[in-house]
Write a protein that binds this DNA or RNA. Structure first.
Lengths: 154, 154
DNA sequence: TTTATGTAGTTGATGTTTCATTGATTATAC
DNA sequence: GTATAATCAATGAAACATCAACTACATAAA
């Protein structure tokens, strides 16, 4: 076994359904957000992270927290700034650095968008699953993240 | 409970780690493909689906199979055609339609890329997980897909 | 201190994905 | 049989993401 040309039936089915689910679910959540708010899914991710940190964060910390490359975040902050959802601020203690800060408008849009989004996450995902499945998914995700971290360090 | 402003701790941790894992894993698999072959991850997905179907498929069927919007696929096929990985062909039985067909070059690139990719999927993901976790993930994904399908029909 | 190395963040170019619209054809309803 | 609706696919514009290069500052070593 372990034919490296393909995956086995079981492996393949699991892998494929996870990928497919992720693709569809993310698409649906993005669509749901766009229909019911001014925020895209990426906007939403940024704003949630920021408001969970008192509304301001160093850019590199935010990037690490949400798993984005710094360039992607920088560009996205640029676009969000134009729409007055966030602003940039200088950092005194490290003059290379900068903060992103949620604006009043950013908070408001997030508050309008959040209930619908989290309801959709429950309705489409969480509510479908047994407690065992939830635990399995969490453990599996964390194990994979640990594996990825090891890979990156070497 | 069921506060719709946010997710509970357990819910949130599960949801967040799954999202984060997916982001990182996909990024790493994409990087791995780009380093070791001429194919991007999306290229790879298209070519796998095509070669599993005798090398040719109607465009809308391919889109459904891999879960892409047809517009995305159309653009992607355009770019892949320029690189001679696939070609388009007319469809006689339905004159609105078209086929995508893998070229010889497309098959060759896929054969070169596949072993490294599937090895990485095993090494980074499948091999980390217990059989129970694999089953749970598969069942959960399929349940969510079913839920999504219901949502779309209504 | 000078020099080297690393880190934070931005930028521009390029590549990709989404969204809304359109043309062409096929399927359904009247 | 014609009008109506639905489907297949392509397109252009805009939003988004990636990559390589670069500035500016910080840290460590010589």
């Amino acid at each position: 076994m372990a034919n490296s040309r393909t995956l086995s039936d079981t492996e393949g089915r699991t892998w494929r359904s996870l990928q497919f689910m992720q693709l569809r679910l993310t698409a649906e959540l993005g669509r749901q957000l766009s229909e019911n708010s001014e925020l895209s899914y990426p906007d939403f991710i940024v704003l949630v992270a920021l408001t969970n940190a008192d509304g301001r964060m160093r850019i590199f910390e935010l990037a690490n927290h949400i798993g984005w490359e710094k360039s992607r975040l920088s560009h996205h902050i640029g676009r969000m700034s134009l729409r007055r959802l966030v602003t940039r601020e200088k950092c005194d203690s490290d003059r290379r650095g900068a903060f992103v800060v949620v604006t009043k408008r950013g908070r408001k849009e997030l508050e309008l968008a959040a209930p619908g989004h989290f309801d959709a996450v429950r309705r489409l995902f969480l509510d479908q699953l047994t407690p065992d499945q939830l635990v399995a998914i969490r453990d599996a995700s964390e194990a994979t993240l640990e594996r990825l971290a090891v890979t990156e360090r070497s």
